[in-house]
Design a protein around this nucleic acid. Structure first.
Length: 870
RNA sequence: GCGGAAGUGGCGGAAUUGGCAGACGCGCUAGCCUCAGGAGCUAGUCCGGGCAACCGGGUGGGGGUUCGAGUCCCCCCUUCCGCACCA
């Protein structure tokens, strides 16, 4: 009989009390530990190349080992795991690896603060977070684990860097770079968010430094074009990438410069414009304060310091405000003039704070009549405004122009080009410029080359040597890796820590052998993460980053999930690196990630979880209270994976209750549902109506879960279908008399009727297999208790049988003039005529037809009948 | 300003192609079972009217297409996200 066991003690301290008096108990903690151990011991998720099976590469963005993962972090791993486990059951050879993005500033900052070496800090964190993932039951091939801070990994960063150097894709340049004073290092453009550091938010300033760059712009056009083919990426990410790359077609035009004597034309100012059709209206030239001519003009002017001071002031203006238009347009006249090559008229050359030094040529032609910014500037400084594009239909009043007209129109006052439409004007004028050598058509990108030098310790040493005799010399492959030296003082000062280690810096030149110096900057950690997905295919290769044959089998990643915050960082860098490897002949695809899913964040009290806000939910706490399976199920059920979710304890409790409900139903049946005497279902003609209905529900659930799962990844609705099946099983138990008030009469239950056992067995087994990607521990445990020795993967994904799922009869709705007035049950295979007849005879429908003529009857088989009457 | 996504019960969210709006869960209510219930089982739960069968309204607002619109088209409002002086 029922044993009544108050179980409050188990929950002591958790703030929750549950007693489950009727055994059996669902005790996730013991089950989960058991299965996790078994998976580890048997290497259950390790895989190898197997060309006899289709592969599936399932990857979640690897983790920065920051300390402890919270549920916001682990949601992503759960999503990937559910997909990986499904694909395994569907017979795919699934590569599902994990690793650590282990270089980076926090380790170094922690070292400064806690007097702990970054490596110790990092490896400790990795150990802890790996444990967290294992406690969640994520099915990783841990045998392939990588950590980017280990020489076995960063060796290949260095190797690739020297390949890129050889191909001219890595180069050194002195330029203005983004500087974060808090992180004490340079940032790439992608890493500046709203004018601040992507990591700490500190406002970024400009510094001129000699830096290493990767020539991502060489692939700008291809990266843009190929985005069209990424049909399984979120549109949002593609849009962000397109905007970031920022392609614009236009022309560069040279304005001959009038010399200081006012006569001699000795040089040119080149401008970039997308609107060469407006060039007759260019009444001035504006240089960016950073433009090299500014300094020259100053030198040549009567009062050099005055000019320089003004330009300096612009340069020092808040970059964020200057970039976002938050600063009022200001400028000054350099006193010089240039010749508009189309009008042959002299135009003044100004310097203004709204012109960007690092876009185009750093100089623009001012066309106030047809550009909003130029209009504002010309109005302020009383520069001439000339209309050269006339609005069609509603002509502009040239004498009194209230605002600029930036749209297309018909050219006027444009010499031989007058009368042309804007587009035609652009074509003819560009051709003219090219023919006369005053300009050329160009495509301008907003994307800049990727500055990767970092003045920090905890990163990949850049494998370059500076020799007074030979210049810049890459470290030969045979001398790689250049190991990161261990002994370092962490001062937190703003220079490269490696520069203070003479044993590191001083080196013989690989070419001539004379004393030389090593590069002391390290690489941006985004280099590490730009190709790690290839390393997973061959993680221990000691002679190459990876074996192309292995990447040929596993690549590209079939399903990649992670946060949107990497839309223009990691995801664009990786697309770049994939092409570099392709051009090195090492990979045979262009795009590294066939499908991308950007998972939504988990909020707590309306905020993103973060340690500093103190609102993190620790997965281990939840596992202790409810088990990893309940946590996984809840996170998958609460919303679609792409959506942001608000964490609720009550929701997690609900998922726990559901699993306990599964357990209470299935566990007592595990004896009676196995062994001899269960009739096969195929020849079962003697099923009761309830038994047939349960079979139908079972197969309908198989259909729904399978369809929701992949590629749709509607995981929340897949779970709800499983809940419906369980509800139906309980109802069936009552009706079949095997349960009373949801409880079985005996722990060692025996169900006499073979048909009942057969349909229950089918339902229970389907349920366990379908739920196993979500709650693998519970599924494996009950599956084993049902007498299966080989586990759910061996069993395979359940197969939907349409003949079983098909109902004999269906209820269809009957509408009269668009309103549902009644329902009628008809045979599933009834003819349209029969359905129509039945619908017109429905008692609730008849009154609505009284006194009216039926004009039309629309029959949608299986759905409804629409009657039009008036 | 430009671009993208989205507005559905008290809440999270369902609804392949236009076809019974609100599945499933949370919360709430009632009953059962209980020494007890904060456990379990069952039922109810969009709004208004009615004892009820039913009737009317209803997917941000307004128009439209259609036998039929949460879904398609046009206009508007709101929210979130991204970009933002890129010439």
């Amino acid at each position: 009989m029922w044993r009544c066991r108050p179980r409050a003690a188990r929950w002591a301290g958790s703030g929750l009390r549950y007693n489950f008096d009727p055994v059996p108990d669902y005790t996730p903690q013991t089950i989960e530990t058991k299965w996790q151990q078994r998976w580890t011991e048997t290497g259950a998720f390790e895989v190898d190349v197997d060309r006899s099976r289709p592969k599936f590469y399932c990857l979640e963005m690897f983790a920065y080992p920051s300390g402890h993962a919270h549920v916001g972090h682990v949601r992503n791993y759960m999503i990937g795991d559910v997909v990986a486990r499904l694909k395994r059951m569907q017979g795919f050879n699934v590569l599902h690896p994990f690793g650590w993005d282990a270089f980076g500033l926090p380790a170094e900052n922690a070292a400064i603060k806690n007097k702990l070496h970054p490596e110790t800090w990092t490896l400790d964190n990795i150990a802890y977070m790996k444990g967290q993932l294992q406690r969640l039951g994520i099915s990783y091939a841990w045998g392939r684990e990588i950590a980017t801070c280990l020489p076995e990994y960063y060796h290949w960063n260095q190797w690739l860097f020297t390949r890129m150097y050889e191909k001219g894709l890595a180069f050194r340049r002195r330029s203005n770079v983004n500087w974060c004073s808090s992180c004490q290092t340079v940032l790439a453009n992608e890493q500046v968010v709203d004018g601040g550091c992507w990591r700490c938010g500190t406002i970024v300033t400009q510094r001129e430094l000699e830096q290493w760059f990767l020539r991502i712009t060489a692939y700008a056009d291809e990266l843009l074009q190929a985005a069209e083919g990424l049909t399984d990426w979120p549109e949002k990410v593609l849009t962000m990438q397109r905007n970031w790359i920022g392609r614009s077609e236009g022309a560069r035009v040279k304005y001959p410069l009038v010399g200081i004597d006012g006569q001699v034309v000795d040089d040119t100012i080149e401008v970039f414009t997308t609107r060469i059709d407006t060039i007759y209206g260019a009444t001035f030239i504006v240089l960016a304060p950073e433009h090299p001519l500014v300094d020259r003009f100053a030198s040549e002017s009567a009062d050099p310091s005055q000019l320089r001071a003004q330009a300096d002031r612009f340069r020092k203006q808040d970059r964020l405000a200057r970039m976002s238009g938050g600063v009022e347009k200001e400028g000054f006249d350099t006193g010089r003039t240039a010749i508009n090559p189309f009008t042959k008229q002299p135009v003044p050359v100004w310097v203004a704070n709204f012109v960007l030094g690092d876009y185009g040529t750093g100089a623009v032609m001012g066309v106030p009549a047809h550009d909003e910014r130029d209009f504002e500037f010309a109005t302020k400084y009383r520069l001439p405004i000339t209309v050269v594009v006339q609005r069609d239909g509603d002509p502009l009043d040239e004498m009194n122009l209230p605002e600029s007209f930036a749209d297309e129109g018909t050219l006027v006052h444009s010499g031989e080009f007058s009368g042309l439409a804007s587009a035609e004007g652009r074509a003819r004028m560009s051709a003219y410029a090219e023919a006369t050598g005053i300009g050329e058509r160009t495509v301008q990108f907003r994307l800049k080359d990727w500055g990767i030098s970092r003045q920090r310790y905890w990163g990949t040493p850049i494998p370059m040597i500076y020799c007074d005799g030979c210049g810049v010399v890459p470290v030969p492959d045979a001398d790689l890796p250049v190991p990161l030296p261990r002994l370092v003082e962490f001062s937190g000062r703003g220079d490269s820590p490696l520069a203070q280690i003479p044993e590191f810096v001083n080196v013989a030149c690989p070419t001539c052998g004379t004393p030389a110096r090593r590069e002391t900057d390290t690489m941006d950690t985004f280099v590490d993460s730009s190709w790690y997905f290839y390393r997973f295919c061959d993680p221990t290769n000691g002679s190459a980053p990876f074996d192309p044959k292995k990447v040929g089998y596993w690549g590209p990643v079939d399903f990649y999930s992670g946060g949107v915050e990497h839309a223009i960082l990691h995801l664009i860098y990786s697309r770049f690196f994939a092409r570099v490897f392709r051009d090195l002949g090492m990979v045979d695809h262009d795009e590294p990630f066939a499908r991308l899913l950007t998972q939504g964040m988990v909020l707590k009290d309306g905020n993103v979880m973060s340690k500093s806000k103190g609102n993190v939910v620790d997965p281990d706490d939840m596992i202790r209270k409810f088990g990893a399976d309940a946590l996984r199920l809840y996170v998958m059920f609460v919303a679609p994976p792409e959506k942001e979710v608000e964490w609720t304890d009550a929701g997690l409790e609900g998922s726990f209750r559901f699993l306990a409900r599964v357990w209470r139903f299935v566990d007592p049946l595990t004896t009676t549902l196995q062994g001899q005497g269960i009739p096969g279902l195929a020849g079962l003609a003697s099923l009761s109506g309830d038994e047939k209905a349960l079979r139908r529900k079972t197969h309908d659930t198989i259909r729904r879960v399978t369809a929701d799962f992949y590629p749709r990844v509607h995981l929340n609705t897949a779970v709800s279908a499983l809940m419906e099946l369980v509800n139906e099983m309980y109802a069936f138990g009552e009706k079949a008399g095997v349960t009373k008030q949801g409880r079985f009469a005996d722990e060692q239950l025996v169900i006499e009727r073979g048909e009942t056992r057969a349909v229950l067995k089918e339902a229970v087994e389907a349920l366990l297999l379908l739920i196993s990607p979500f709650t693998p521990h519970l599924a494996e445990e009950l599956w084993e208790r049902l007498g299966h020795a080989d586990g759910v993967v061996a069993a395979g994904w359940p197969v939907f049988d349409e003949a079983v799922a098909k109902a004999d009869e269906v209820e269809i709705a009957v509408q009269v003039n668009g309103k549902v007035r009644g329902r009628v049950v008809v045979a599933a295979d009834a003819s349209e005529d029969a359905i129509r007849e039945a619908a017109l005879a429905v008692p609730q429908v008849v009154p609505h037809l009284e006194g009216k003529t039926v004009r039309k009857v629309v029959v949608v088989p299986g759905r409804l009948v629409g009657i039009v009457a008036n």
